[in-house]
Design a protein around this nucleic acid. Sequence first.
DNA 1: GCCGATTTGTCCGTATGTATC
DNA 2: CGATACATACGGACAAATCGG
Lengths: 241, 241
Amino acid sequence: MPKVKYDTIYKNLKQKIETEEYSFQELLPSEHTLVLEYGCSRNTVRRAIAELVKEGYVQSVQGKGVLNIFRPVEQSTFKMGSIESFKESAIRNHQEYFTNVVHFETIQANQKIEKKTSFPQGTELIYIQRIHYFDGKPLIVNHNYFLKALLPGLSKEIAQHSIYEYIENTLGMVIVTSKRVMTVEKMNEIDMKYIDLKDYNCLAVVSSFTYNQEGVMFEYTQSRHHPDYFKFVDIATRRNG
Amino acid sequence: MPKVKYDTIYKNLKQKIETEEYSFQELLPSEHTLVLEYGCSRNTVRRAIAELVKEGYVQSVQGKGVLNIFRPVEQSTFKMGSIESFKESAIRNHQEYFTNVVHFETIQANQKIEKKTSFPQGTELIYIQRIHYFDGKPLIVNHNYFLKALLPGLSKEIAQHSIYEYIENTLGMVIVTSKRVMTVEKMNEIDMKYIDLKDYNCLAVVSSFTYNQEGVMFEYTQSRHHPDYFKFVDIATRRNG
DNA sequence: GCCGATTTGTCCGTATGTATC
DNA sequence: CGATACATACGGACAAATCGG
């Protein structure tokens, strides 16, 4: 939570859009106006607006202005364009959550695991299976593989609570980039054991590769979601080129 | 395809990363070096790098430099962070493609359609059903709803070819933002009629809301994909705040 | 542990180009 | 055409993080 100018302007504008102080399809104040209002340079205003564009809140049109295209409808299980832990996501959606660690062991990556996680064979990993409950219902099966060398004190107790809090607050490691791949897969025996899929025979699967500030990939996670409770939102903008 | 400085630098760096002229986990030349190399200002270099960060190619670390975290593995059916038509995507993946228009009519939005597409009731829409074939196999069922007022000459023949080409080249309309929602849904009768799902009973569904340069949403599309041929890639970066 | 060099992050002011109305 | 608004680009200043001596 840095106290930087463009970020406060960004948050301020975002709030005004969310509370509909600026209404849908209305132009925001011009960059020049915002410069005067916030007492900053035009670059700083533009930086704040760029963030809003990335999140699909506004769309800037050369010669006209910055259009508000935010629709309050968009509540989603996972927020896009940002890395968010299970716990953070549950809190944001005002849901009761609970995590159950059903498996916790140290393993060495074999060929099969290398293919899936891209950790080289022989690497020491901590493999955890966790079931996530929302409002009492088991909805997500999580398979985590952590680089053991970077998470020395990781325990079953921490896994029950929040691994990301441990990584960031206790270890002081910063999570920077995460590459995620979304697919649909048939259910397996583990899914069946823990999740009531009713008459579905597949799940939404998110595989993610997470990098720390050193550029080292320290985590591979596969999250398998009950289809009824899965939603993935994305904003795409056409590249100028 | 603008001939802008930061874009040429971006493309140049991107190519060097893809061809592994800069290898994995290596630092790129410093911003200062690139300034000298390209004869431009530091801002321009930084802009180019920002694009690469957004696409998960590199990760910049304060005090150290810009890390290459690109893995050539990542070939995906759909490129993220950009709007791409079915045809563009097929070409990029070197696949044979073919589109079959199985339904084409003008309708008026009713309550049910409003709920799904967020087009107001009574709006005149063109509703199209298309089946997309890759390498001879029917893999995607597409339901398009276009604002008729903005696509006057849209015909079945155009739909067979490429609607996006018509929109951009003929109408000169610019597609700017698209909000997409990914879910998993049970198959319906139309899916069953056209796609061989084998023993799957559900599909990957992408619903998208597309806006033009005026900020008007002119298209709602639901794409229903065969699970075996669906992959959605996303890069998430932790917001500094 | 401190200091200085290097490198990225933030911010400013200005100039020019381009699209809209 | 002129006024307004966003887009690109430049150059400079200082802050913050990293790393080596």
